[in-house]
């Protein structure tokens, strides 16, 4: 947990990332930046999905519609926070010459998306009947 707090401090302090280790090849940093942006796009897509559930499934019961939308929005927020945290960790590992950090987040996110997708199928089928 203290590691996480230290990472959060690094989010706002560029000069402290630069203090550690040596500067890696700029191409590695740019690749890390593109990975960060890809995760940010995933987060924006989840947020857009939250809007879409709210807008384009008006026949659903209120609780289901709002619940699914809020779940997607929460996943989007989590994904964007994780994006910047992972970017800082990778950047620091490259500066120190360590291995890149392993992460369980992709598995977690794909499981959440799969559960939400199955819930959508069930809800749409049941919602149309009722």
């Amino acid at each position: 947990m203290s590691d996480f707090v230290r990472n959060i401090r690094l989010w706002f302090a560029p000069e402290r990332v630069r203090e550690e280790g040596g500067t890696p090849d700029y191409r590695f940093s740019l690749a890390n930046e593109r990975t960060f942006l890809a995760w940010l796009r995933t987060a924006l897509a989840l947020i857009g999905g939250g809007f879409a559930v709210d807008q384009f499934l008006p026949d659903l019961r209120w609780a289901w519609r709002v619940g699914l939308a809020l779940a997607l929005l929460a996943a989007g927020v989590l994904c964007s926070l994780r994006a910047v945290n992972h970017w800082v960790r990778c950047e620091r590992a490259m500066r120190r010459g360590e291995d890149l950090p392993a992460s369980r987040f992709p598995v977690l996110l794909s499981l959440v998306v799969a559960v939400v997708a199955v819930a959508m199928v069930v809800v749409v089928l049941v919602g149309w009947e009722g």
Partner: peptide, 10 residues
């Protein structure tokens, strides 16, 4: 190009 500043990412 310089590395992306953490401030920009945040």
């Amino acid at each position: 190009p310089p590395t992306l500043a953490p401030r920009q990412a945040t």
